[in-house]
Simulated assay, not measured.
Amino acid sequence: MEQLMMVLIGILVSVATYLILSRNMIRVIIGTAVLSHAVNLLIMAVGGLKKGNVPLIGHEEEPFTDALPQALILTAIVISFATTALLLVLAYRTYKTSGSDDFKELRGMPDE
């Protein structure tokens, strides 16, 4: 299962890299969102699947699950949602003021 996750993470990172290198502002924003999803999957895959009891004091000596990867992923999801929302608002405002979402046009370079 971990090998399949690593292949999926590689595909997501390559798609995100392609989108981030685009000239279109919306594609760059979608690329950063896809890259954050890939990082979340990577954290989950590195954390591994562990079966066990909850880590509470007073329970018997049994193997327990580690809650740190889930907490990191939850924090990363919240941060990526806020970042994506901010970037979308900035892109909308840029499009509204300049009438374009192409980076070359925003820099003042003519299309060739």
Rank of each mutant, 00 (worst) to 15 (best):
Ser22Asp: 11
Val78Tyr: 04
Ala82Glu: 07
Asp102Arg: 10
Ala33Ile: 05
Gly31Cys: 12
Ala82Val: 13
Thr75Asn: 07
Ile9Trp: 09
Thr65Glu: 00
Ile79Tyr: 06
Ile43Lys: 02
Glu105Lys: 14
Tyr18Ile: 15
Leu90Phe: 15
Glu112Gln: 13
Met25Gly: 01
Lys51Val: 12
Thr75Tyr: 09
Val89Gln: 14
Leu88Gly: 09
Pro110Asn: 08
Glu105Trp: 03
Leu4Val: 10
Gln3Met: 09
Val7Phe: 12
Ala76Ser: 14
Ala82Thr: 09
Thr32Met: 08
Ala33Trp: 06
Asn24Ala: 03
Met5Phe: 13
Arg107Ala: 14
Ala85Glu: 06
Ile26Leu: 14
Ile43Gly: 03
Val46Tyr: 05
Glu2Ile: 00
Ile57Cys: 05
Met6Ile: 14
Glu112Thr: 08
Pro110Ile: 07
Pro110Gly: 10
Gly52Ile: 04
Glu105Asp: 10
Leu56Phe: 12
Leu4Ser: 09
Ile77Arg: 02
Leu21Met: 13
Glu60Trp: 13
Gly47Cys: 05
Glu105Thr: 13
Ala85Cys: 10
Tyr92Pro: 01
His37Lys: 11
Met44Lys: 03
Glu2Phe: 00
Val13Phe: 08
Asp66Asn: 12
Ile79Thr: 08
Leu87Cys: 11
Leu35Ala: 10
Leu72Tyr: 08
Arg27Trp: 06
Ser80Ala: 14
Gln70Glu: 02
Ile20Tyr: 03
Ile43Asn: 06
Gly108Thr: 11
Phe103Glu: 06
Leu68Ala: 01
Arg107Ser: 14
Ile11Trp: 04
Ile26Cys: 02
Leu86Ala: 15
Leu12Val: 07
Leu106Cys: 11
Thr32Asn: 08
Gly31Gln: 08
Asp101Ile: 08
Glu112Asn: 15
Asp101Thr: 11
Ala38Met: 04
Gly47Lys: 01
Gly10Leu: 11
Ala76Lys: 06
Leu74Asp: 11
Asp111Val: 13
Phe81Glu: 05
Val15Thr: 01
Tyr92Asn: 14
Leu4Ala: 12
Leu74Ser: 13
Leu4Cys: 06
Gly48Cys: 00
Arg107Gln: 12
Leu4Met: 10
Val39Ala: 14
Glu2Thr: 07
Glu61Gln: 09
